[in-house]
């Protein structure tokens, strides 16, 4: 096990000691995501259509595309 994995395992062990409520409070955050958060509802017939829309419309730095 390398040092990175050891560090992660310590994180996992620490998280396991917290309640689900506490874990969720630490884990769910909210920041504005341009374009994505700009309409109240969006739907796609296929996941391929959704992925294509993400690639074409979202800023690359959001990470929703397959390449930066």
């Amino acid at each position: 096990m390398n040092s990175q994995q050891k560090e992660w395992n310590l994180d996992f062990q620490a998280a396991a000691k917290r309640s689900l409520k506490e874990r969720m409070r630490y884990s769910f955050i909210k920041t504005y995501k341009p374009v994505l958060d700009d309409v109240p509802y969006r739907s796609f017939d296929t996941m391929a259509e959704y992925r294509k829309w993400c690639e074409q419309n979202l800023p690359n730095w959001l990470g929703y595309g397959r390449s930066l």
């Binding site: 109240p40 509802y41 969006r42 739907s43 796609f44 996941m47 259509e49 959704y50």
Partner: peptide, 17 residues
């Protein structure tokens, strides 16, 4: 209209409202 879409079953629906 959105209710009908969900009932029909889109592959992906994003709700921000």
């Amino acid at each position: 209209a959105q209710q009908k879409e969900i009932e029909r079953g889109k592959d992906f629906v994003q709700l921000r409202s």
